[in-house]
């Protein structure tokens, strides 16, 4: 901070000619206007890093074009969008589309499915990596620990398409592995992917299979940083492993866990759309239709742009509110928060 500023400001004090040439292109007349000083002060601060502004212009334009431009376009949720008239030219429609959505027969279904799937994913998916990390951390053989870690990471790198493909083959009612086992145990084959009742369990458990190992990475890193003296002192005081996990390891990873919990609560309405969409079929719609797939269907298949945008906006706003509320709650309850 100091360094760059010092050099330039000093150079200006010493050399008034340099100052006038540097400032002249900005505004030649009206030397004392407040607006001019406003820009002058800022330009002075930016000057040493001009090349860096040029660099950041590229990522900045990405964010402006592909993130903020769509945010500007969100106004079509309050309009009747016609492609010919464009975003600004289309007439305002107020909260019409929101009301249609709230009164739609699909409202309860998509909202509840979204919330339920996310809730179960967090309820089971959040503690799983903590548990696995705590147990892996207690393994005495370094080699065995490495083996377990590396194997547990692997499923994370399988694509969602392949993951759902694997589910379909394994759960196939005619020759799937799982149904072979069911038959072996004397049951009748179950068409898992067709039954709405099975959808959430399959979604959540396959998510755990894929994500738990990878989820431990961060906790293992924290656990590796636990002070050894603390553990040794606990051993000398006669604490057994279980007590050491409970009183040392667990408190150590709590702050990290809380941050991750806040983050996942912020996406509670963003269920893994890619996977839901792949697992969806006409028979399990009752359980698999979520807000995101509804937006896709209405917007891109039925071309109801404004309505779909309104549904999507409803989703984003709820998400954002939940994030802010949970974060505020966490800050009040403990000391960890996102901001």
């Amino acid at each position: 901070m100091k360094y760059g500023d010092d050099i330039t400001s000093e150079a200006r004090k010493v050399n008034p000619v340099a100052q006038s040439t540097a400032d002249s292109p900005l505004s030649p007349e009206n030397a004392s206007s407040p607006l001019r000083t406003f820009f002058q002060v800022r330009f002075k601060k930016m000057r040493p890093n001009l090349s860096l502004y040029l660099l950041i212009l590229f990522p900045l334009s990405y964010f402006l074009i592909f993130c903020y431009w769509p945010m500007y376009g969100v106004q079509i949720a309050f309009k009747d969008f016609y492609a010919i008239k464009g975003i600004t030219g289309s007439p305002w429609a107020g909260f019409k589309h929101f009301e249609t959505f709230f009164h739609s027969i699909f409202f309860d279904r998509v909202v509840w499915n979204t919330v339920k799937i996310s809730f179960y994913s967090i309820l089971f998916g959040f503690p799983a990596p903590i548990l696995l990390a705590l147990l892996m951390n207690e393994l005495k053989s370094r080699f065995f620990r490495k083996v377990v870690q590396n194997i547990s990471y692997a499923p994370y790198f399988i694509s969602q398409v392949v993951m759902v493909g694997i589910l379909l083959v394994f759960l196939s009612p005619t020759n799937g592995l799982i149904n072979k086992i069911v038959e072996f145990l004397g049951g009748n084959p179950i068409a898992f992917m067709m039954e709405p009742g099975w959808f959430q369990s399959i979604f959540v458990s396959s998510g755990i299979w894929q994500g738990t190992g990878w989820g431990t990475v961060i906790y293992m890193a924290v656990l590796a940083g636990v002070d050894h003296q603390q553990i040794e002192a606990a051993i000398l005081d006669g604490a057994n492993k279980w007590q050491r996990i409970w009183h040392i390891s667990l408190p150590c990873i709590m702050p990290t866990a809380v941050i991750l919990l806040i983050l996942s609560s912020g996406s509670i309405m963003n269920v893994g759309f890619e996977k839901v969409f792949l697992m969806q079929n006409s028979s399990n719609m009752e359980a698999s239709d979520v807000i995101a797939t509804y937006v896709y269907r209405k917007g891109l298949l039925n071309i109801e742009y404004s309505f779909a945008t309104a549904v999507g906006l409803f989703n984003s706003v709820i998400n954002f509110v939940i994030l802010v509320v949970v974060n505020a709650f966490a800050r009040r309850a403990g000391s960890t928060s996102l901001w």
Binding site: P59, V74, G299, G312, L323
Partner: peptide, 22 residues
């Protein structure tokens, strides 16, 4: 300012349809 501008996109987005229109 830039960090906030960038990070905000992590928590809020225009959604599928506005992106499609862009």
């Amino acid at each position: 300012v830039l960090t906030v501008l960038f990070t905000f996109t992590m928590f809020f987005s225009g959604g599928l349809i506005p992106l499609y229109i862009v």
